[in-house]
Design a binder for these strands. Sequence first.
DNA 1: TCGTGCTGTTCCGTGACATGGAACGAACTT
DNA 2: AAGTTCGTTCCATGTCACGGAACAGCACGA
Lengths: 251, 251
Amino acid sequence: MSRNSTTGNMLDKAALILDAYHPSGGELRLSELVARTGLSKTTAFRLAGNLVRLGFLEHAGEHYRLGNHLFELGSLVSRRLDLRETALPFLQDLYESTRQTVHFGVRDGFDVVYVERIHGHDSLALPSRIGGRLPLSCTAIGKALLAFCKEETCDLDTRELPRLTPYSITDPVALRTALEQVQVSGLAYEEQEAAVGVSCIAAPVFAGATVVAALSVAVRQQQFRPAHLAPAVRTAALGLSRALRNGVTSA
Amino acid sequence: MSRNSTTGNMLDKAALILDAYHPSGGELRLSELVARTGLSKTTAFRLAGNLVRLGFLEHAGEHYRLGNHLFELGSLVSRRLDLRETALPFLQDLYESTRQTVHFGVRDGFDVVYVERIHGHDSLALPSRIGGRLPLSCTAIGKALLAFCKEETCDLDTRELPRLTPYSITDPVALRTALEQVQVSGLAYEEQEAAVGVSCIAAPVFAGATVVAALSVAVRQQQFRPAHLAPAVRTAALGLSRALRNGVTSA
DNA sequence: TCGTGCTGTTCCGTGACATGGAACGAACTT
DNA sequence: AAGTTCGTTCCATGTCACGGAACAGCACGA
């Protein structure tokens, strides 16, 4: 018996293998899978074989990589699908009027998950990535989502606020007052709180009365002119919110 | 014993559940899952519970939907990740210069899988979708991929060519000659072969000497002016190919 | 107020099958 | 040649996934 606390069933082990890829993509050898998952060599081998057969993994020579099927399934996640489709034109508008990196994300737990991210040739060195997640408190999008979440699912005071840069807000009261300013202005700001040298301005996106997402523009700190960006961000968010209200919002 | 030919193991059944969502996303009730998968009610219930616990499924009231975790994993599929990131700026350029729907796809088997698709407010009614797949023979991107696949993994003659519209090419020899024209011109065309009223022009993207993807522009049939679009498509593809050659191609 | 049909859920005995240790072959370093 | 470390195969053991049956909640209509 490997002293793994809860050994779990076959599915759990398969998920362990898939989650071994979290760090930064790439490819993994069988032995690396064994090391990261704690599974026995035999089990990892058999499970990986099964995952390959199902298309969740691909077996390239000595290496395993995440498979096509995952990409296809991931693209079907319903809320994301509809949201992205209707949001894209507005994000394009925003990009064209600012020519800066544009983000679009939704909330999941106490993170923002990025659904879309468009940029030109001069992409910033950002920790954000489509499908990636960052703490709500460290991003403009996160603040926009937090400030307008009606239900009090925001027990911020009980949580330890993470720190990504020296500028990250870690004091709950400081965050509270920042959120109040977001509520009155309808815009959320973030200055080097997620990555040094990068600042953001974000606006919430509503479907009816509830926030479902937020969009933002990220620029280099030295070029950060909120007054220049604010109108474009606001109009994009409003336009998208209107489209969502009129559109066929199934759920 | 359910007369299911190969009963399969637990993983297969989990994959059955996930694949039940293929058609057009949305949400499914437990009974619908049972109907689509052929699993017993008990098994489906237990597996769905496991999948929910792992984040592959979400349980919203009476319904199950594909979960966040799938989206995140799908975004990690390595080749897609790098490819999309470097391709995006060039796709943006292409969109801005044409203001038409831009597609970006890779090959998988005898389908093209769409990695990116950007458009403005006037989106066409297209069967393409990010993460979705269409037959190679019915799309401009597919022809571009086929024409330059060096290895003879293209046993076109043995395959039945699918038909999406009355204009789809179903004759292997007709396809052959079309592909030869693609090889000499470096551009692939498609007129209403995937969707009535829509035509495309595509160009292959190379990493070194092998095609890795293709990009295209889709326009309404009545506006289809290949000569207008060709230069933009070609330059985008060449620029991206150059970026891929220079870029940090890990694998 | 009962039926009747549909749901989603729990329980449990049984046996198929996932499991991990051991052994094997290959490739590579010492 | 002896030592790695890798991927792969084999097999006896016992766990755990299985599905039938029974239960529970709900919406019907009689």
